[in-house]
């Protein structure tokens, strides 16, 4: 329990420092507090919806369905589905992790969920359109065409390596 104590102490210290800064008008502390609020609000706009969808996914989608499309028999289709699903994911990595975890528990292959995580970082559709509008279509297309195959290949290598070592993703989250 020692680690937990350290955590509680540092979180309390952080809160104390922010409160103190706002009372005394200490600028760096105020800025840090504002950063915290901005990012919390940003994530709270997305997370409740994301977790409700994960909950619905857990009760409605059958294990066999996930196994069929994202599991061992799925083959190449599994990676395709992972990339398509990633394209519609909102937020970023912090949303992709819990989704990937649920997929895995329902029977998705390791390499497929790593593909999903990587792809949800680089090819979310709204983000890519936004990127192209600032950086140009040439930039975005090269980025996608180079990074996506690399993500899939590295996911397959990592997935196979971990499966050989009987790696299991933690339970209980």
């Amino acid at each position: 329990m020692k680690r937990k104590d350290i955590k509680i102490v540092s979180i309390s210290a952080y809160i104390g420092f922010i409160l103190f800064s706002f009372i005394t008008g200490f600028d760096p502390g105020k800025q840090i507090g504002e950063n915290f609020v901005t990012f919390s609000v940003d994530m709270l706009k997305i997370l409740p919806c994301a977790f409700v969808l994960i909950g619905l996914f857990e009760v409605w989608v059958k294990k066999e369905t996930v196994e069929k499309h994202f599991g061992k028999e799925a083959g190449i289709r599994g990676y395709m589905w992972a990339v398509l699903l990633a394209g519609t994911t909102v937020g970023g990595l912090y949303v992709a992790f819990p989704v990937a975890y649920s997929l895995y528990n329902k029977g998705a292959k390791l390499s497929v969920i790593f593909t999903y995580i990587g792809a949800s970082a680089i090819c979310r559709v709204p983000m890519t359109i936004f990127e192209a509008s600032f950086m140009g279509i040439k930039f975005s297309s090269i980025r996608l065409l180079v990074s996506l195959p690399l993500v899939i290949i590295s996911s397959i290598l990592l997935g196979d390596y971990l499966e050989k070592r009987n790696y299991k993703i933690m339970e209980g989250k």
Partner: peptide, 15 residues
């Protein structure tokens, strides 16, 4: 089932 889904969502979120 929906109620169960919400429960799962809350539990995962809190965790």
């Amino acid at each position: 089932k929906t109620l169960m889904a919400i429960k799962i969502a809350v539990k995962k979120f809190v965790n």
